[in-house]
Design a protein around this nucleic acid. Structure first.
Length: 439
RNA sequence: GCCCUGGUGGUGUAGGGGCUAUCAUGCGGGCCUGUCGAGCCCGCGACUCGGGUUCAAAUCCCGGCCAGGGCGCCA
């Protein structure tokens, strides 16, 4: 490990202990995963962020005081162990630590609210109530290490490709965008809302001359959905780029997805192994399925779906049966897409909008946007919205708004694809859903 | 919000009008010098809440709360 700047008495993480250190004194720190007291010899399994290491205390090789202290240790207590590395074929991983000194940093209360050794599984509800303990399991922390790497990789990719990171407000004045329900909040003497999407702000940035922007931030949606793939607070990876069309940003999106998957594969091998995931790097270009063809494909699976309808859950599943990979759905009807989506120049009934799917899960949607003020006004009115409430947004289109396109990618849904999680709550430390607001 | 299913020790479960409420894990105690899901012995610990039916309710009925699954909603 490089670039460690936190000063700590710990000399090694568990995974850094190997036979080459045989005979050396090390200081390791962590939690007691398990204790196996065989009478004359005690094995203590010490767990830290990266793995589990065996501390072996034979009664004849440690002082009687230390042996007694080890007998009294409890599961999940935090300890520092100073000891000697000993290569041994009998030890798991071929190495163990013979302790000279053990400091009990903090004792754990017993019994535990859940079993950190995973001998007895716990339900997600129980796990989320005691998330800090749940995360002590490597099978759980692996998900978040992968999510972290994915976000890092996404940032790197966008920065290297000329994008500027922006931060837009999450406290917004009104529910003018229509569509999803917003969370109302009290803003001094006024009512305000939590932002559902940075959409309008990132578009306004296209009139700033930044050309290419991105934001990775929370979005809030007050929908009462109660499914394995919805959250009321999620992280959205949003981008917007000027002087380009939807085809251009679709290429950016597929390259970003492939780059992130490769990067996770390269840097998270042990986490993927823990999760038993064999990550496949998808080939580019991703398949493009036109909306009209998609209707036929869904119908061919015996699932009814009419032209002009959004995908039902059954339709998503039917598509997932046919394509178990990443693919775009393009050519969406203009009528079922938001006002800011550009109608297709050849056929205004169709739009320049696209969704990125992974099997039956929508992970991103985007479009070329309307950049002409008058058309935008017309579209707002046609969708039954009040143009007056869009004044500040619309002004940006009156002083030289370039053509532009963009998309939003759900960080948690993408993480589901990377980790094989079937419940989106698995990919959030402290998920917010219909019922859960704590911890 | 709708439909279905469920709620039993700390955790995960079996049972389903009357027996000391099953098992695993855990926890406490004991034995044990190579465990690695350690083993063996002893012990501890539970029927979601409210109302109803009944001689008798953890079990049946109604309602609440909560959970799981599915759907709707999700510009």
């Amino acid at each position: 490990m490089t670039g460690r700047i936190i000063k700590c008495k710990r000399t090694h993480y568990s995974k850094e202990i190997n036979q080459e250190l045989n005979g050396e004194e090390v200081t390791i720190m962590g939690w007691i995963h398990e204790i196996r007291d065989l009478g004359g010899i005690i094995f203590v399994l010490l767990r830290d962020r990266d793995g589990i290491l065996q501390i072996t205390a034979p009664s004849k090789k440690v002082t009687p005081e230390l042996f007694k202290q080890i007998q009294q240790l409890k599961k999940e207590s935090v300890i520092t162990v100073i000891g000697t590395v000993k290569g041994s074929p009998k030890a798991p991983g071929g190495v163990e630590i013979i302790p000279q000194n053990i400091e009990l940093l903090n004792e754990s209360k017993l019994p535990l609210p859940l079993d950190t050794t995973e001998k007895v599984r716990a339900e997600i509800d129980t796990r989320l109530d005691s998330r800090f303990l749940d995360l002590r399991k490597h099978s759980i922390s692996s998900i978040f290490k992968i999510k972290s790497r994915m976000l890092h990789s996404v940032r790197l990719f966008l920065e290297e490709n000329g994008f500027i990171e922006i931060n837009t407000p999450k406290l917004v004045a009104s529910a003018t965008e229509g569509g999803t329900e917003l969370f109302p909040i009290t803003y001094f003497e006024r009512e305000a809302f939590l932002g559902q999407s940075p959409q309008l702000y990132k578009q306004m940035m296209m009139a700033s001359g930044f050309d290419q922007v991105y934001e990775i931030a929370p979005i809030f949606r007050a929908e009462e959905h109660d499914t394995l793939r919805h959250l009321n607070e999620a992280i959205s990876i949003d981008m917007e780029a000027a002087f380009c069309d939807h085809e251009d940003v679709m290429i950016t999106l597929e390259q970003l997805v492939v780059t992130a998957i490769k990067d996770v594969k390269d840097h998270c091998q042990s986490e993927l192994e823990t999760l038993e995931i064999d990550l496949k790097v998808p080939k580019t270009p991703f398949k493009r399925v036109d909306y009209d063809d998609m209707i036929d494909m869904v119908n061919s699976q015996g699932v009814p779906l009419r032209h002009g309808e959004d995908l039902s859950r059954a339709a998503e599943k039917a598509m997932g049966e046919l394509i178990n990979d990443y693919y775009f759905i393009t050519g969406w009807p203009t009528d079922i897409k938001p006002f800011y989506v550009m109608p297709s120049p050849e056929d205004p009934q169709k739009s320049c909008a696209f969704d990125l799917m992974h099997a039956d899960l929508e992970i991103s949607s985007g479009a070329m946007r309307v950049h002409k003020h008058d058309l935008l006004m017309e579209r707002i009115k046609k969708q039954g919205l009040n143009p007056d409430s869009f004044n500040r947004y619309l002004a940006a289109f009156e002083y030289g708004m370039p053509p532009h396109s963009g998309w939003g990618l759900g960080a948690e849904r993408f993480t589901m694809c990377l980790t094989g999680a079937s419940n989106i709550r698995e990919t959030v430390l402290f998920p917010r859903d219909r019922r859960r607001l704590t911890p």
